[in-house]
Amino acid sequence: MSNVLDQINAAHREISTYPVATGEGRSLLLRRTYDASADDVWDACTDPKRISRWLAPVTGDLQLGGAFQIEGRANGEILHCDKPRLLKVTWEYGQGSVTEVEIRLSKDSKGGTVFELRHASPAEIVDELVRTQGPAGAVANGAGWDLVLLGLDGFLQGEDLDTARWKDTPQMREFTIRSYHAWGAASQAAWGISADDIATVVEYAVQQFAPGSSRGSNS
């Protein structure tokens, strides 16, 4: 695995308002560049045999309008598919939690691929999460997507990252905590929270969700 700090710094993160099918929404955005062609990145994100090697087994009718299931994560419907530029799906991980995930690919100036992932949720879902957990819930959710992008990076470099075995290692804890801090900064910008309050939010996320904590799980 590449240096943890390098992996964290490779991505741009932001939280913002964003329209969804039901109206106003909130989104987590991750953007980074991979040293691979757009076709290769697209294939890694859409070929079920390849997806299972860096994310989880996926089943279903994998075409426009079809339904899919990602083992242990989410299920949904394929809303838009424009190879190799745009993939948009619903992302459902519990009753009443229909959200949307969008992946956009574009070439960068050095021949690699700019990968952009946006996870948009109806405003009421995010606002309730923030009301009950503070921004810590959004911080933990963003860190979950950081781990997904880490797995994709390793796969594109020829390393199958077994996150199940890696989850209890010191490297995983360090990666997660650094991710929480990065998403804490994004949360501060989105909600206008003071630096002291964000530090409290991040510490809460570490205690509740990071590997080795009382709950020790990630979204």
Rank of each mutant, 00 (worst) to 15 (best):
G151L: 01
L152E: 15
D153E: 15
D153S: 10
G154E: 15
G154H: 08
F155C: 12
F155L: 09
L156T: 14
Q157H: 10
G158H: 05
G158Q: 05
E159F: 08
E159I: 15
D160A: 10
D160H: 04
D160S: 12
L161H: 10
L161A: 08
T163M: 12
A164V: 13
A164Q: 08
A164R: 03
W166M: 11
W166D: 07
K167S: 13
T169G: 04
P170Y: 04
P170K: 02
P170M: 06
Q171P: 02
M172Y: 04
R173V: 04
R173W: 02
R173C: 07
F175Q: 00
F175P: 01
T176K: 01
I177D: 00
R178V: 07
S179D: 01
S179E: 05
Y180H: 10
H181L: 01
H181Y: 04
G184R: 09
G184C: 04
G184D: 01
G184V: 11
S187T: 14
S187P: 00
Q188E: 13
Q188W: 00
Q188T: 08
A190K: 08
A190L: 01
G192I: 14
I193E: 11
S194D: 15
D197C: 01
D197E: 13
I198Y: 00
I198F: 01
I198K: 04
A199D: 12
